[in-house]
């Protein structure tokens, strides 16, 4: 049901530019206004998310650790697994963000007869890293459409990515890798019954959306070639805030690709995709395990109104004297002085 819903939504999204550009001819709407709108939603939405999270108080210090914390000098401290200083936290975050270190430790539980056993499960890590790294390289490679003159490093990236020169124009390696990664991530949700049970439409939809974007991109590269000079004119105009509609005819496939990208950008701040920002705000990752060295004060704490012994003594002095309970005069004076 979730899957069918997502497929239907993606198909409808493909239909939008087909009708909008193909039938109604709203070229400027789909090549200028919608992209600008979508990317403003992306920017302001994500900045709102960042500020919203940064304003949330962190009541407890809860880093997840799986190593020896900093202790006596003769006990070996595991710096990455239980960081004690900010520097060690940065290092741990770096490996988390760029190499998905915690995912690398992914385990699978299974029964060996009646015995519960755990085994390493690296496939998810591999699929995730294939997808994310390829996506980053593809994103950077697309700068060739937005920038003129194109910097040397983008040319080199483009050349290396099409290094094996298979096909004409040569197919990009990252195109193949991202499709492989996406296919794995998608099939995992379909085939594994446990993961399938946990999968909502909000998991299928972004996957299918990105699969749609990658597929239309590859189709344009290899089979139904658009006039890329015209596309560059459009993209360069958008990037320099001087948008113009190119004179050359741009194919409908490009508009589908572009509209799906805009949808992804606009959907980003409201979806699970904000883990791009959220990873930096995970309290289990971004806090140092220094509970015993530094006191973490709960920001929720407010000044509590309480009565000291001396105030209490002052209140009941008469009754206490009557009953013959000793009055602590000197100690209270000293306490007042100190306070």
């Amino acid at each position: 049901m979730n899957l069918i819903f997502s497929i239907v939504v993606v198909l409808l999204l493909i239909l939008v530019p087909l009708i909008g550009v193909g039938v109604l001819g709203l070229t400027s709407l789909f090549s200028i206004y919608i992209p600008y709108l979508a990317f403003s939603i992306f920017f302001f939405g994500l900045i709102y998310r960042i500020i919203d999270w940064a304003r949330s108080p962190q009541p407890f210090k809860i880093p997840t650790t799986c190593g020896q914390q900093k202790s006596l000098p003769w006990i070996k401290h595991s710096r990455l697994e239980s960081p004690a200083s900010s520097w060690e936290v940065y290092l741990r975050m770096f490996f988390e963000v760029f190499l998905f270190r915690s995912l690398f430790r992914n385990l699978r539980a299974d029964f060996d007869g009646k015995r519960l056993i755990y085994g390493s499960a690296k496939w998810l890590w591999l699929g995730a890293i294939l997808f994310h790294v390829s996506f980053l390289i593809i994103l950077l490679r697309h700068l060739r459409f937005f920038v003129y003159p194109v910097p040397e490093w983008i040319k080199i990236l483009d050349f290396v990515d099409s290094f094996f020169q298979i096909g004409l124009p040569p197919i990009y390696l990252t195109d193949l890798l991202i499709l492989a990664g996406l296919t794995f991530l998608f099939l995992r949700r379909l085939i594994d019954p446990k993961v399938n049970y946990l999968t909502h439409a909000s998991d299928y939809f972004p996957l299918l959306l990105i699969i749609g974007i990658a597929t239309t991109g590859v189709l344009m590269r290899l089979f139904f070639k658009p006039d890329i000079y015209a596309i560059k004119e459009l993209a360069h105009g958008l990037a320099t805030f001087n948008p113009t509609l190119p004179k050359g005819k741009i194919s409908l496939l490009f508009y589908i690709h572009f509209f799906l990208v805009c949808t992804l950008a606009a959907y980003f701040p409201f979806s699970k995709l904000v883990h791009m920002v959220g990873v930096f705000f995970s309290p289990t990752r971004n806090m140092a395990n220094d509970n015993r060295m530094r006191r973490h004060v709960n920001p929720w704490d407010y000044p509590v109104k309480y009565t000291t012994y001396c105030e209490w003594q002052e209140k009941f002095r008469d009754v206490m004297e009557e009953a013959g309970i000793p009055i602590d005069e000197d100690w209270c004076k000293e306490a007042q002085k100190q306070a």
């Binding site: 459409f145 003159p149 194109v150 983008i154 040319k155 483009d158 050349f159 890329i228 000079y229």
Partner: peptide, 8 residues
């Protein structure tokens, strides 16, 4: 063109 759109 080739320099604008980067082809090899």
């Amino acid at each position: 063109c080739h320099q604008v759109v980067v082809t090899h």
